[in-house]
């Protein structure tokens, strides 16, 4: 067992963990924070997306012992207008992917704010990126929605970013 101090949503938790425990399982099974979902458990679906020091990662491929002392934010620690926007635009149906979509979108909007380019950004040398629908879709490709609510998700993100459609 390995001792690790996880800081989640502003609260520190001291845990004794088998090093095999993923950050996802530590959140869900050890801390009872079940808002973060387990989908594929192999980094392909994005349902387990959380923020670490403000950056989005898939918690299923992270070993919990690697993330001691980092600032982890799960959906339980998020209160953001993007959530209202998802409701308004029908950005979900069953809701299973939604917490991952929201955490991923918040991380993504911070990346755009910092001027980070994407694979569809035409001129990489330009320091700022215009958040077109093509940019939103490319940047959110790590989050699958089996209900197919992608149009609503794109609308919610665009509205929240203050981009006219």
């Amino acid at each position: 067992m390995v001792e690790v101090q996880l800081r989640v949503n502003g609260t520190a938790h001291r845990l004794e963990l088998d090093p095999r425990v993923s950050l996802l399982d530590a959140l869900r099974e050890h801390l009872g924070l079940t808002g973060t979902k387990k989908g594929c458990n192999q980094g392909a679906c994005g349902a387990c997306t959380v923020l670490v020091d403000g950056e989005r990662i898939t918690a299923c491929l992270a070993l919990a012992v690697q993330y001691g002392g980092r600032e982890i934010t799960t959906i339980e620690g998020v209160a953001h207008p993007l959530q209202q926007a998802f409701v308004r635009t029908d950005g979900f149906q069953c809701g299973y992917c939604t917490s991952g979509q929201i955490c991923s979108a918040l991380g993504m909007l911070a990346e755009v704010e910092a001027g980070a380019p994407s694979a569809v950004t035409e001129h990489l040398a330009e320091p700022a990126v215009a958040l077109t629908d093509a940019e939103i879709r490319e940047r959110m490709s790590g989050n699958l929605c089996r209900c197919g609510a992608y149009n609503g998700i794109t609308d919610a993100i665009r509205e929240t970013a203050g981009v006219p459609s």
Binding site: G46, T58, M108, E111, T121, S141, G142
Partner: peptide, 16 residues
Amino acid sequence: LAQALLSGASGQLRNM
């Protein structure tokens, strides 16, 4: 190099 990196995996995985 920037384009190659950005065309790999997803936003989450590129952060890891």
